[in-house]
């Protein structure tokens, strides 16, 4: 399938073009931007996974310590109770945090299907500017009809550059 990569000068032009193309129902649009677009909704399932991992890590380690001190190897130190639960909290907290952080980190790569060192869009010459100051939209061109429809729209959108690439 053919794709078309459109570059815009700033966020305002980019957002306006995105709205127009979405209204025209041109297909699945992908964006490549130097920063998160302001209009983007921050929604991700990963923070919930982090929370679950954190709570699981906390409870699991807490239970392990309780098991060790109460059943596996009770040790009387200065007459303290075996189930001295407040002293279990710091390690349980730290390991809960570690579980949450690792889940967040790994979760990011899973959610974004990274690392993916090559993607077809990389062949476009202007694309390097996506990590600098270029605001890019990528639209699918399924057939000649879609191409002419896209060209009609492009005339009014005035992108900075247009490139076609095969996906």
């Amino acid at each position: 399938m053919k794709m078309m990569l459109l570059e815009f000068d700033d966020q305002a032009a980019f957002s306006a073009a995105l709205a127009r193309l979405e209204a025209a129902g041109i297909g699945a649009i992908e964006t490549y931007t130097p920063m998160p677009p302001d209009a983007q909704v921050t929604r991700s399932p990963v923070p919930l996974c982090m929370f679950v991992a954190g709570v699981t890590g906390f409870s699991g380690v807490f239970a392990l310590m309780a098991f060790a001190d109460v059943h596996a190897y009770p040790l009387n130190i200065g007459g303290q109770p075996d189930f001295a639960w407040p002293t279990f909290v710091p390690i349980a907290f730290e390991l809960g945090v570690l579980c949450a952080m690792l889940t967040g980190f790994i979760g990011y790569f899973v959610a974004c299907r990274m690392p993916q060192l090559y993607e077809p869009v990389d062949v476009c010459r202007a694309f390097g500017r996506a990590s600098r100051d270029g605001w890019f939209l990528s639209i699918p061109i399924e057939d000649a009809q879609a191409l002419s429809a896209a060209r009609d729209l492009l005339a009014s959108l005035a992108p900075l550059s247009v490139e076609e690439y095969a996906a």
Binding site: G54, F109, P115
Partner: peptide, 28 residues
């Protein structure tokens, strides 16, 4: 740098998750 950037391109999905996860990581 390509290997360490892990194929980050600034796509909508990459930013969406990045912003959410980075914020939660900071809060942790």
């Amino acid at each position: 740098y390509g290997i360490f950037a892990c194929g980050f391109r600034g796509s909508s999905r990459q930013w969406r998750h990045h912003r959410a996860i980075y914020g939660v990581m900071a809060a942790v």
